[in-house]
Design a protein around this nucleic acid. Structure first.
Lengths: 144, 144
DNA sequence: ATAATAAAGGATAATTTGGTCTTTTAATAG
DNA sequence: CTATTAAAAGACCAAATTATCCTTTATTAT
């Protein structure tokens, strides 16, 4: 569904959100350990999230990553997916045709549309805050 | 969503179905031209489909690929996806966790379930015959 | 100011996926 | 039975994705 990078991005963002809710800034080492991802690779992904203003980063001693509490309620899963994987999952044809459209639909166009719209709706309505609360309440998990 | 190989597999199967409905056996060259895919790579994919009994292949002069008309009504998109991409799209966790389950769900587990179920339903109810008819009627297209 | 800390950035390596080429095997028409 | 045709099979190559390592930059506590 998503790239590995995007999976890590979502995991990391949720973890940072959980910590930011408790006013903890978290470092790369901590993050990659908690979300079970390769450290250096995760660093690259966090950079991208930071450049896309999804998370904030602070250099130096006691630096790390955080998410503004007010912003957190507004960040949707779709923003993370867009920042890492781009819009392929949104506009791409199910059979990989560039020219596929309503006017010239591929054989699975209408069938896929239903699924894609459901996915789109889900990504655009799910907030990072919401997901982080499930974790904090112990209803969901983030590691092996 | 699907791998490139799987996209080519679906395209090819639909095209072979269209031709088989008109009692035409089709060769690799013809297929890859019609579905706009690399010839040698398509050959590999057709082999996989043949081994999985989704299509039939005949060697020698006037050989090629075909689909039994009676079988065609039974072949679902899910069988093609399963043969090429495996069951990852069915059972895999949205965030890539191996241990994700109903009992130990990842933060997006329930959200993804809705989308995945929709996808599953679509793949398991859509037949190759159905898709090929849309093409034959000129309602859909398979190439640039 | 300076040493220590932690993220940013750049170069590079490994793996997976996508794709090609050549040889072998099977089928059939003459 | 032999030449021809077309798929099967195997080795190989290329590109993209995933992942690592090393150097630089920014921050802060002493």
């Amino acid at each position: 569904m998503f790239s590995k990078a995007c999976e890590y991005a979502i995991r990391a963002t949720i973890y940072i959100a959980v910590q930011s809710n408790q006013d903890n800034r978290v470092g790369l080492k901590d993050i990659s350990k908690e979300i079970d991802s390769p450290e250096a690779y995760t660093a690259k992904i966090l950079q991208q999230l930071s450049r896309n203003n999804i998370i904030d980063s602070v250099k130096g001693p006691h630096g790390g990553f955080e998410i503004d509490k007010k912003e957190m309620t507004k960040i949707k899963l779709s923003q993370i997916v867009m920042a890492i994987d781009g819009d392929a999952i949104y506009k791409g044809c199910g059979l990989g045709f560039k020219e596929c459209s309503e006017k010239q639909p591929c054989p699975v166009h209408d069938k896929f549309k239903v699924v894609r719209n459901e996915l789109k709706r889900m990504l655009e309505t799910t907030t990072v805050l919401e997901l982080s609360l499930g974790l904090t309440k112990g209803l969901t998990f983030l590691h092996r």
